[in-house]
Nucleic acid binder design. Structure first.
Length: 674
DNA sequence: CTAGGGTTAG
């Protein structure tokens, strides 16, 4: 019976194991130590930890050390590290001695939950009982220390080993990679070669992972050759690591090639490709691959869901994201921090701050990413004061803010015009949390100071930066100069932008407009000519709206849509009724070389107005109209939208290149400052 | 009768 059970446990044969269990009961062997140990082990290996636990507990008080070990191992192998530790503790309390089988199991459990203190105590017992020469015990120690970020102690155990054990070396390499010590990992791998150690199918995934984070394509390709030569190309995990490594390098063709040659692909293979495409900016392709994965019958896991939701967030495709959310709920997968964080971000980026907030409220635990996401989300949606409220809650909850949190927080302060809070948070980040401000933080501060009319202070802050000002910093300064009519400083900012972003038309247009506004027509024309001669083109303004999963896009005075006639008469109806309510077209946003009537006509059919009119025609009453624009919304359109939201009792959400505008009952969430 | 290591996200 013992050998049959051994076979069942090794092969994971649950049904045959249950048959043996029935036979054990029939033949009254249910109190035989050897037999019950075998059953405990079989059930544990078949992921039936409850049954294993039941049999273990039903045994009379005195259980031998082998059965205890089987139970500890069972918990550990079923991902119940804490229970494994509890069980081991009970074993020690009962006075049962551990052996060379017990220690590796309990150390694995410690490694899984990074319980380095518990692990170190076990290490003490190992030394006391003389098991430290056992190679299984040693490798488990190396792995435990490495996983608990204690590379030094791991290395010490490794160095004291008498044999060159590939398992221990593999563990050490993985530990180094996870700690960001890729160089150490690589030199270990080279040492393995020098020692002529036999690599196995576990070595390659770790080493490839190392090359992936080092972006070392040359070495990676030669290892790929070795893999082919030594016959390791049939291992799924090796191939998954290859796909991931090539995808992370941006060599999507190579990644795809390896992927296509794999006879069996699992969710990890697909995820590596999906994230590879997403990271290289091909978000649509990532969504398409996700659909292909589902068609291939692969069920998504938490990781692929988190990636796909962040692709949805990047593309602001709300309906796709909602479907992914719905499928996640239906799938019965347990909710997880990473998926919830991605859902939260997706909703916030799509302008659904209420849904983002609902996700936040539903979460059992929040980490720094959660808090940062909600802070940024509220700020992007024009509710900077709520962001600040969440930041204070975060601090009260004991979560430490990081570099990114402060970008979100300062962004919130600047968009809400919270000058004093912004100043004090900016000072606090280095003083209280030791985080050195980066260009991103300075850009927010300069934006905040600029909006508050403190141009002198903004310039002073720029001059005292200890990091090189990047384009975002100069853009913030330029925007401030435009609002406050400071030509001289504006020229300086624009000139820096011409160099940093030579293909960006925005600084040319802004500077030219600033010249026009102060009557310097010659200068304005000169900038336009300069722009033309450098071949820089203004990106055409474009707005779009998603209705029933179809995207309808419009440019200014667009007549290409099949319902053009209806759309234009809706725009005219819109204009007429908001004029009655007091709207006056702001012709300062129109072209200069037209008379008043011509200017007004030029404004009337801007892309965002066409998209909103289409929304009024197609989106059911009561539902919000969500429009996206590639550029900043024009001032006249912004004013018109406020009136439309009141006259038509509609919540209009317009996401432009800068932020979300929530128009409701004649008001905009941005407070008219954007 | 009982034991150790690998790949995917943010």
């Amino acid at each position: 019976m013992g050998s049959v059970l051994r076979l069942c446990s090794t092969l994971g044969l649950l049904r045959r194991g249950k048959q043996v269990h029935g036979y054990v009961i029939k033949t009254h062997f249910e109190s035989n130590d050897y037999v019950v140990t075998g059953l405990v082990d079989t059930y544990a290996k078949c992921n039936c930890i409850m049954e294993a636990e039941y049999l273990f507990r039903m045994m009379p008080d005195k259980k031998n050390h082998v059965m205890w070990t089987a139970m500890v191992a069972g918990y550990s192998q079923n991902g119940e590290a804490l229970k494994a530790m509890e069980c081991y503790r009970d074993m020690v309390v009962e006075g049962v001695e551990s052996n060379q089988f017990t220690f590796p199991s309990i150390l694995t459990a410690c490694a899984a939950v990074k319980a380095v203190d518990f692990g170190a105590q076990v290490h003490g017992c190992i030394v006391r009982t003389g098991f430290e020469a056992n190679v299984f015990v040693q490798s488990a120690l190396v792995d435990m220390y490495a996983k608990c970020s204690n590379l030094d102690r791991a290395a010490r155990v490794l160095e004291n080993m008498e044999v060159d054990d590939v398992v221990s070396w593999n563990s050490m390499i993985v530990g180094c990679v996870r700690q960001g010590c890729e160089g150490k990992a690589l030199s270990l791998f080279q040492k393995m070669h020098a020692k002529d150690m036999k690599m196995d199918s576990f070595t390659y995934p770790s080493v490839l992972n190392c090359f992936a984070s080092m972006k070392d394509i040359k070495n990676a390709m030669s290892v790929h050759c070795v893999i082919l030569k030594t016959g390791f190309e049939d291992y799924k995990l090796v191939n998954n690591a290859l796909v991931d490594m090539y995808a992370k390098q941006g060599s999507l063709d190579c990644a795809f090639q390896v992927f296509n040659h794999m006879p069996i692909k699992d969710v990890v293979s697909w995820t590596s490709l999906v994230t590879g495409y997403a990271h290289n900016g091909h978000h649509e392709e990532a969504l398409r691959l996700f659909i292909d994965m589902r068609k291939a019958g692969i069920y998504p896991d938490h990781i692929v869901l988190a990636s796909i939701l962040s692709a949805c967030a990047e593309l602001t495709v709300l309906e796709f994201g909602q479907q992914v959310h719905a499928n996640f709920v239906k799938s019965g997968l347990k909710s997880s921090l990473s998926v919830d964080n991605s859902l939260l971000t997706m909703y916030a980026k799509c302008g659904c701050i209420e849904d983002a907030s609902r996700v936040f409220d539903s979460m059992q635990i929040q980490d720094v990413i959660t808090w940062t996401a909600i802070i940024v989300g509220y700020a992007q949606n024009g509710k900077g004061k709520d962001s600040v409220r969440f930041y204070e809650q975060m601090i009260a909850s004991g979560t430490k803010p990081d570099f990114i949190t402060f970008i979100g927080l300062l962004f919130a302060c600047s968009h809400a015009g919270l000058l004093e809070s912004g100043r004090s948070y900016f000072a606090s980040m280095e003083k209280d949390y030791g985080i050195k401000p980066g260009a991103e933080h300075y850009a927010c501060m300069i934006d905040l100071l600029g909006r508050s009319g403190k141009l002198v202070e903004a310039e002073a802050l720029l001059n005292q930066m200890d990091v090189e000002p990047d384009a975002t910093v100069w853009k913030a300064l330029l925007a401030a100069c435009r609002v406050h009519g400071n030509l001289e400083l504006g020229e300086k900012a624009a000139k820096n932008l011409f160099e940093l972003e030579p293909n960006n038309a925005v600084p040319y247009i802004m500077l030219s407009n600033m010249y026009s506004a102060s009557g310097k027509w010659e200068e304005a024309a000169r900038i336009r000519r300069m722009m033309k001669s450098k071949g820089v083109n203004k990106e055409p303004g474009c707005s779009w709206i998603e209705v029933n999963s179809i995207v309808h896009s419009f440019v200014s005075e667009d007549r290409g849509h099949e319902r053009t006639a209806e759309i234009y008469s809706k725009v005219d109806e819109m204009t007429l009724s908001i004029k009655e309510a007091g709207y006056v077209p702001d012709t300062s946003f129109a072209l200069h070389n037209l008379d008043e009537k011509g200017k007004e006509l030029g404004l009337a059919y801007h892309s965002e107005k066409l998209a909103v009119a289409f929304g009024l025609l197609t989106v059911p009453p009561g539902a919000p109209i969500r429009v996206f624009k590639n550029l900043r919304v024009c001032g006249d359109c912004h004013s018109a939208m406020k009136y439309v939201s009141r006259a038509f009792h509609r919540h209009i959400i317009l996401r432009d290149s800068n932020c979300f505008h929530h128009f409701k009952e004649g008001q905009c969430s941005c407070g008219d400052y954007w």
